[in-house]
Write a protein that binds this DNA or RNA. Structure first.
Lengths: 162, 162
DNA sequence: CCGCATTAAGAGGCATACCACCTAAATGCG
DNA sequence: CGCATTTAGGTGGTATGCCTCTTAATGCGG
């Protein structure tokens, strides 16, 4: 109770740096910036890369499956796919067995792009946490995994844990 | 060096859960979801709340000052302010001393809203990290602060540390 | 076999968030 | 003092990211 000299009614924390949500938003921002810096020449975003690598690993998927895979809302995935399709990186076609679903497929051009981007993307991920000494990096990642898993049903697009 | 059994060329990580950027994006998503859930009745977003609390603590600020304060791009701040102004929560007026700047001021209605939102926002922040046992929460926060501080110049809008 | 709940996708809308480019105003330096 | 540079703000464009409503197809129960 005496941790803060504020009266009990003044619940607002004194500094934004004490708010987990604020720190997470800033770190997300920073990572995106590093990612775009590293991969600028490929003209790709973090989400687009996540989506392409998901397809590279899992093969053809429908849009709902993709959304589940990368933890993104269904309609957001659809928009990203449109852009990737326009660039010829992926293609969509109606499923034969269920004419509601569209199966998304990684095209050769997309597969080649993923290969070329991999190293730069890795650098971006590494740089995001490189300010921490080695032992703490693993601790941080496991804490993040724990928080994500615990609230997996919260975000609108529950992410299916492997 | 033997921390990973992957060959050096296979830079793509097997799971999205090994990528810091992916985990951060998901956690950001989760926090936003929790925040909106807790504050739904006030019709406010995390960024809007950050902006209002910054004004509540620091008094009148111009748009660039606000951007610096909450670590957001200048034009993004301008858009948020427009919406807050339309709701009568803040007001803008030209500075007398420097006719380029517009000073943003928290209106009574905005100040009242912040007070009413505080508790719910606090709950959202707490819930974001509540899956971690107590000692690890502080560790996580200090690691996040460290990463944000180390890359403060990276995000497009450098955040001035207090 | 028919109606109805479920499910995949799309369309439209709102709110971040960034960038590049533009204008106006202030500032600073020769 | 005059002009170049800097700085604040605005505009338009792109990309997430979510929601709601709609449409179409499936499938299940009566």
């Amino acid at each position: 109770m005496d941790a803060s000299s504020q009266p009990a009614s003044a619940t607002s924390r004194s500094s934004l740096l004490d708010r987990p949500g604020f720190l997470i938003r800033r770190l997300h921002q920073i990572h995106c910036s590093l990612f775009l810096e590293e991969t600028r020449r490929f003209n790709i975003t973090p989400v687009q890369y996540s989506l392409l690598t998901a397809l590279a690993e899992r093969g053809e998927l429908d849009q709902v499956g993709l959304a589940t895979e990368i933890g993104l809302e269904r309609t957001s995935v659809a928009e990203v796919i449109q852009r990737l399709e326009a660039r010829g990186l992926v293609s969509r076609r109606r499923s034969e067995s269920d004419r509601r679903v569209k199966r998304v497929r990684l095209e050769r051009k997309g597969r080649a792009l993923v290969k070329r981007v991999d190293e730069a993307a890795q650098r971006a991920h590494d740089r995001t946490i490189e300010a921490l000494p080695e032992p703490e990096r693993a601790a941080l990642l496991s804490q993040l995994v724990r928080l994500v898993e615990a609230n997996n049903d919260k975000g609108q697009a529950p992410f299916r844990m492997p």
